[in-house]
Amino acid sequence: MTTATHTEPQAPFATPNPHAVPSAETRGFSISSLVLGLVSIVASYTFFVPVVGLVLGIMALKREPASRTMAIWGIVLNSVMLAGAVLVTVGALVFGLAMLPFAFL
């Protein structure tokens, strides 16, 4: 009785290519920037949320070219809300300083 065996030689294990592009790209920075842009609509007067979202959006533009649209939307939302918060703060300071002489009447 004979047994049938596979006689082709096996290929050695291939070493991974260090220059290969990973198939699953991460989109963490751009998603975080977009989410913080949406959150900054509610929490824009903290200055912290729009600034972090703006920094993450700029980092996402450089690191994640596949999710460029989300990064751009995050940058736009965060910068508009940051500019609005700055304008409201400056307006409140100017109004407060203008009303300061009347505070002691």
Rank of each mutant, 00 (worst) to 15 (best):
H6T: 09
A43Q: 06
T26H: 04
P22A: 12
T46D: 12
P101S: 07
L82W: 00
P16W: 10
S30A: 07
A71D: 02
L34C: 11
F102P: 05
T7K: 08
P9V: 05
V86R: 01
A11M: 07
P12Y: 06
I31M: 10
P22R: 03
Y45H: 10
Y45N: 14
L97G: 07
I75D: 03
S23N: 11
P101F: 09
T7G: 08
V42T: 01
A60Y: 00
Y45A: 14
L87C: 12
Y45M: 15
A98R: 10
E8L: 08
M70A: 15
A20P: 03
K62W: 12
G96M: 10
E25F: 14
Q10M: 09
Y45P: 03
L54N: 01
G57P: 00
F104D: 13
M1R: 09
R68N: 03
T46Y: 15
S40W: 05
V21R: 00
A60L: 02
G91F: 08
L100C: 02
E8F: 12
G57H: 06
H6A: 07
F104Y: 10
R63M: 13
G28K: 02
I72P: 04
T3C: 14
L56S: 02
I75M: 08
S40N: 14
A92M: 06
A24D: 10
G74T: 00
V21E: 05
R27C: 12
N78S: 06
V21C: 02
L87F: 14
A66D: 11
L82V: 04
A103R: 05
Q10L: 12
L36S: 04
S67R: 04
F48K: 01
I58M: 13
T7F: 08
H19P: 02
F13S: 05
N78G: 05
A66H: 09
M1N: 09
A103G: 07
S79N: 02
E64Q: 11
G53L: 03
S33R: 02
A20F: 00
S44E: 07
T2E: 13
V76E: 03
T3S: 15
S79H: 01
H19Y: 15
L34E: 04
I75G: 01
R27Q: 13
I41W: 03
A4P: 14
R63H: 15
M81E: 11
G84H: 04
A98I: 10
N17F: 02
V76K: 00
F29S: 13
Y45K: 07
P101A: 05
F95N: 15
T46R: 04
V52P: 01
V39Q: 11
G84Q: 07
P16N: 13
T7M: 03
L36W: 00
Q10G: 10
M70F: 12
I58G: 09
M99W: 09
L93W: 11
I75N: 11
T5A: 13
S44C: 14
S67C: 12
